[in-house]
């Protein structure tokens, strides 16, 4: 690929989805676009990009932008975080929402492992208020990821990355080497294609929003906007969950880290004290 190709991709990614595309990392971009070129019937990435320039076809532009996103995920990634959500945050939120519902959103759900991990964690949590309903929402920019996520079907490799064996045999069924999440859990999740840089006010509010490992892939100019947009979608005592190594220092003052809980952020000081 030429420097002009990389500049085109960086501009498209930034303009359409706020993505940060590093123009010196040809190999990363090539590894993401090569499967798309094959699927679309182009003999090379260069011919794909030539078609992109010539046609300016929206469908192809979005397919390229989606291909530039990072979709790396696993079940129960950041085990300590999920243990905290299951043992502390979910019971606490259920006590606060007596007779209501706890709304949970995986905002960049990729292929679904994250939202299903949250749904399984809620199933496994103890001490939940019996009258409280847990509602799960999942969104992603990528239609392909959402399709796979909604299918609830995973390879044997995928289910062995992060999913303890007891949870696997309790919540999945297998046919040969394909594992399907139980229909009961799959049906608790509502799905939607969402661009996180767009207006999210129609989403309603959530008690727990997960946005793990998304911010590093965003252009610095849109990070604060996306985080503040997420913060605005949180209930007063809600939690934002990032990756355990992620920080909001210098990004926003809207949320504060939970002491001793890497990657967890809240706006309510009382929740922070309860979690400590």
């Amino acid at each position: 690929m030429t420097p002009e190709d990389m500049d085109l991709l960086a501009a498209l990614g930034r303009a359409r989805a706020g993505l940060k595309v590093e123009t010196d990392k040809h190999y990363v971009v090539e590894s993401r676009l090569a499967p798309l070129a094959r699927r679309e019937g182009y003999p090379s990435i260069e011919t794909l990009l030539a078609a992109l320039r010539a046609k300016r076809e929206e469908r192809l532009i979005w397919a390229v932008v989606e291909a530039l996103t990072v979709n790396e995920t696993a079940f129960f990634r950041d085990r300590d975080t999920f243990a905290f959500l299951r043992d502390v945050a979910m019971p606490e939120l259920s006590r606060r929402r007596k007779d209501g519902s706890v709304r949970i959103w995986s905002a960049a759900c990729s292929t679904g492992q994250e939202i299903y991990s949250l749904a399984i964690a809620a199933e496994e949590a103890r001490g939940l208020e019996p009258g409280v309903r847990f509602e799960f929402f999942a969104s992603d920019l990528s239609e392909r990821c959402l399709e796979k996520a909604q299918s609830g079907l995973y390879t044997q490799f995928e289910v062995q990355r992060g999913l303890p064996i007891r949870l696997l045999i309790k919540h999945f069924e297998n046919q040969d080497e394909t594992w399907a999440i139980s229909p009961r859990i799959r049906q608790t999740v509502r799905w939607r294609r969402i661009n996180l840089t767009s207006d999210l006010t129609g989403m309603g509010v959530f008690d727990l929003v997960m946005l793990r490992n998304v911010l590093p892939g965003l252009d610095p100019s849109v990070r604060a906007k996306v985080v503040e947009s997420m913060a605005a979608r949180l209930t007063e005592d809600g939690l934002l969950v990032l990756g355990e190594t992620e920080s909001l220092a210098g990004v926003t003052e809207a949320l504060r880290p939970l002491p001793g809980r890497p990657g967890l952020f809240a706006r309510d000081p009382a929740f922070r004290a309860a979690a400590a």
């Binding site: 696993a74 085990r79 044997q156 490799f157 062995q160 990355r161 992060g162 303890p164 064996i165 007891r166 696997l168 045999i169 080497e177």
Partner: peptide, 28 residues
């Protein structure tokens, strides 16, 4: 798998596996 767990296994890996799966299961 259930039989293995009931007999006293702590975790379970299905072949084929790779180093990442071994590390994840041993951590689990």
């Amino acid at each position: 798998i259930r039989l293995a767990l009931d007999t006293g296994a702590d975790e379970y890996i299905m072949k084929p596996f790779d180093g990442e799966i071994i590390a994840a299961k041993f951590a689990e």
